[in-house]
Structures are given as structure tokens and as C-alpha cells.
Amino acid sequence: MARARGRLTSLSKRKQYINWIQEANGTGARLTLACIEVGISIRTYRRWYKAGQVSADLRSDAVRQAPKNKLTSTEQAAIIAVCNQPRFASLPPT
């Protein structure tokens, strides 16, 4: 399970990953190999699990408002319709 860098991981997922890693480590697996199986680095494990607690991501997970200048779905459809006309078919997007 390869994960992209910088991806937000919920606290529940972090706890699940840490539990899996600790269970594997407790039964004899190396910590580094257990982390690789889950798809995180040993550095990420240590950052998430400090002083016996799993830390939450400090980034905001708030839902942000759409920008005021965002195109409506009707405007987007109109632009796509014009771009897909035969006279523009052989032209680059710019």
C-alpha cells in the first residue's frame, strides 16, 4: 500500500496502523519491516507515535469555501462545448 507524501491520514487510520505495527512487532517482526508492510516509513511511525500516544495531524481539516470567481457548472459546460467544436479540434488548448 504505497502512499503519497503529504497525504492527510485520519486519527482513526493512524491508530489502526500503529496497532497493526505494534502487533506485528510484538510477535517478532522487525519494526522497520512492519512499517513497510503498512506503507509508512519508520520516521513516520515515530512521528505519529510519541510517548505512548498516537498524535493527530495538526493540519486543518476544515472544509473551505469555493472561490468567488469559480466557474459554475453551466459556464464550464459552455467552455467545453466551444473547445470541442470541429474548428478547434486540431488546435492546442492554449
Rank of each mutant, 00 (worst) to 15 (best):
D57E: 15
R7W: 00
M1W: 12
A29V: 09
K70S: 12
L31E: 11
I80M: 08
T27H: 09
C83H: 11
I42W: 06
V38A: 13
R59G: 04
Y45A: 06
T94V: 04
S55F: 00
I42H: 08
R3T: 13
A56R: 10
N69E: 10
L71G: 05
G39I: 06
E37D: 13
I80R: 10
W48I: 13
A56I: 10
A51M: 01
Q53D: 04
A56G: 13
N84A: 13
T27F: 01
Q76G: 02
I18N: 00
L33R: 10
S73W: 01
R46I: 11
E23T: 13
A77H: 07
L71Y: 05
R43K: 12
D61E: 08
S41R: 03
E75L: 08
R87P: 06
D57G: 07
V63T: 11
L31F: 04
Y49F: 15
A89V: 07
A78I: 03
V54D: 01
V38N: 03
C83D: 12
C83T: 08
L8N: 00
T27N: 08
A62W: 08
D57A: 15
V54C: 08
A51G: 04
A62M: 14
P93N: 14
Q76T: 14
I79E: 13
A29T: 11
R14H: 01
T74G: 13
A77N: 09
R14M: 03
S73V: 11
I36C: 02
A89T: 09
R7F: 00
A77Q: 12
K50M: 07
Q85K: 09
A62Y: 13
D57N: 15
Q16T: 08
I40K: 02
T94E: 05
A34K: 02
T94N: 07
L58Y: 03
S12W: 01
A51V: 06
N25L: 00
S41K: 09
A77F: 01
N19K: 15
A29R: 14
R14P: 00
P86C: 01
R30C: 05
I18K: 00
E23H: 12
V63Y: 05
A81P: 02
V54G: 01
I18P: 00
A89C: 03
G39P: 04
K15N: 13
K70H: 06
W20G: 08
L11H: 09
A81C: 07
C83I: 13
L91H: 08
C83W: 09
L31W: 09
A34I: 02
F88Y: 15
S90A: 12
W48F: 05
Y45S: 05
